[in-house]
Design a protein around this nucleic acid. Structure first.
Length: 512
DNA sequence: TTCCGACAGTGGGGTCGCAAT
DNA sequence: ATTGCGACCCCACTATCGGAA
């Protein structure tokens, strides 16, 4: 199959808003693909490369290459070239990479260049990714979508399922069972604004501490242990102490879900930055493990002794977990039977925060493990802080925000009467707000840059954030975590905005 | 008819590893 | 030694479609 066909379909998918039409377009393409093309066509239209990331980004791809006049590239040829590029990325020079990219782009038409750019940077922006591609695959093979979805969750890969399905038909889906050693997509949580809201929604539930670390899925099969991240990357080699911990548990074969986190000498959690730095260290693991030892803290059991627990209610999965894992290696929790136990749940949240953790996750006791989904039966509750900050500048948005000033630069007042930038945010804005701020900020503009506008610091905006973290990038030595706009405060003058001093005082545990 | 769950998009900061400067 | 880039951790929020209620 020619690449140009994929580029055309991708463009058509991007141009239509109806999900059903997107699905139909993908299904038609999948049906037409030859068997050899399937392992390429399906991931491409789901917006990902079969090779995974290539080590090539926006910078290298932005070098202009004159487009070909006529389409000639086949998907298999593109796949072979990208495989070659991936190999060069591991070992070779950037110049060689740039040459190969230039060659590929030079052989592509303008339309194909656009498609390849999105594909390689991982931003196809066609309003369809894995979930829509799964529906398309189901339609193309006349298989119930739910069955395909489940197989993809269990395989952790759309491509694997697609190949099996197109080769052997719907019967092939039976092969995809929960298996120790093969990671499944983890269940994720929604947010709730308070414990009472969460308990109201869920009824009988467990309130568990939420640790600010890295999500891990731990598989043990006898002496073999494997550890996977949320995106199913294998990080076993970076966490030797997790392997030891898994081998000490009372079970030979299991899959557990939990969090890995670094604690200090007093048993308080170290900052997320410290845990993340440790888990990210790949080269000298021994030294990293000595300096920042990490511990696993488990909260769910997906499989024990080859029994698939996914469809069991959480209560039963937790019973299995408690059989295998001693108390100190499980998250703290309290059980709540309904709104009448609310005070107890609130106390638990307060204690959890007191111990230095992020917040809590409220989980329905009767819910199954919804692998790969953001299930409504897990609700996280974290305290939210707010500040009134001054808008210093704004950047032009991309995609659906093209032509709108989107990303705000935020400043707090300093002791000397100046303003210190604390970070940026693009979150929390409705379309109406985007329109309003685009006009208002242009009125206040003192300088027009390629990336946006610098404004007179007069507009005050209320910002919500989750906490403070150290920064080497910003002048105050700190930056806001997960900053988002709540509302503009036109009733406030910039002289009334918050100061760096009060911000630091509110987070004494963070030292700039 | 209205409501709500699931998805995709729009980017944020930090850290590590690697290649180029 | 420093700098810039890319990958991958953490993530919030809004708009939209389409099935559920």
């Amino acid at each position: 199959m020619l690449l140009t066909r994929l580029a055309q379909v991708s463009q058509e998918v991007a141009a239509t808003s109806a999900r059903s039409r997107k699905i139909a377009l993908l299904a038609e393409l999948f049906r037409d693909a030859e068997a050899d093309d399937v392992p390429i066509v399906i991931p491409y239209l789901a917006g990902r490369l079969p090779q995974g990331r290539l080590g090539i980004g926006w910078k290298v791809l932005s070098r202009p290459a004159a487009p070909a006049a006529e389409p000639s590239l086949t998907v298999r040829e593109v796949d072979a070239r990208l495989t070659e590029l991936g190999k060069v990325s591991g070992t070779g020079s950037q110049a060689e990479r740039a040459r190969l990219v230039g060659e590929l782009m030079g052989a592509a038409t303008e339309n194909e260049q656009r498609f390849l750019f999105g594909l390689i940077t991982g931003e196809v922006r066609q309003g369809a990714l894995d979930a829509v591609a799964v529906e398309g695959l189901a339609q193309a093979t006349r298989t119930p979508p739910a069955d395909v979805r489940r197989a993809v969750m269990l395989a952790g890969s759309l491509q694997t399922v697609a190949e099996a399905l197109l080769a052997d038909g719907p019967a092939a889906l039976d092969r995809f069972r929960l298996t120790v050693g093969r990671p499944v997509l983890p269940m994720l949580a929604h947010s709730a604004s308070s414990v009472s809201e969460a308990v109201d929604k869920l009824g009988a539930c467990a309130v568990e501490e939420k640790l600010d670390g890295i999500r891990v899925q731990v598989h043990r099969d006898g002496d073999a242990v494997r550890i996977y991240t949320r995106t199913l990357d294998d990080i076993t080699d970076r966490l030797p102490e997790l392997t030891s911990a898994a081998l000490e548990l009372r079970g030979e074969r299991f899959i557990l879900d939990g969090e890995v986190i670094a604690f200090d000498e007093e048993g308080r959690p170290r900052s997320f930055q410290e845990t993340a730095g440790r888990v990210g260290s790949r080269v000298d693991v021994t030294t990293a493990a000595r300096e920042v030892p990490v511990s696993p803290v488990f909260f769910d059991a997906l499989s024990v002794d080859d029994r698939d627990l996914l469809d069991l209610p959480f209560t039963e999965r937790h019973t299995e977990l408690a059989r295998l894992v001693p108390g100190p290696m499980r998250v703290r929790r309290t059980l709540v039977s309904g709104p009448e136990d609310l005070p107890q749940a609130e106390d638990f949240l307060a204690e959890t925060l007191e111990r230095g953790h992020e917040g809590v996750v409220v989980k329905a006791l009767d819910a199954p493990y919804s692998a790969g989904r953001r299930g409504a039966s897990w609700l996280k509750v974290k305290p939210v802080h707010t500040l009134d900050l001054v808008v210093l500048a704004a950047e032009w948005g991309h995609g659906r925000r093209t032509g709108k000033l989107s990303n705000l630069h935020l400043g707090a007042r300093t002791a000397d009467g100046g303003l210190a930038m604390l970070g940026k945010t693009f979150k929390g804005m409705t379309d109406a707000l985007l329109t309003w701020q685009t006009e208002r900020l242009q009125e206040l503009a003192v300088e027009h840059k390629g990336w946006g506008v610098v404004v007179r610091p007069e507009l005050v905006v209320e910002i919500a954030y989750d906490g403070l973290q150290r920064s080497t990038r910003y002048p105050a030595g700190v930056t806001l975590r997960f900053a988002r706009v709540v509302r503009y405060r036109e009733d406030k003058r910039p002289e009334e905005a918050d100061t760096v001093e009060t911000l630091l005082a509110a987070h004494p545990e963070v030292k700039p």
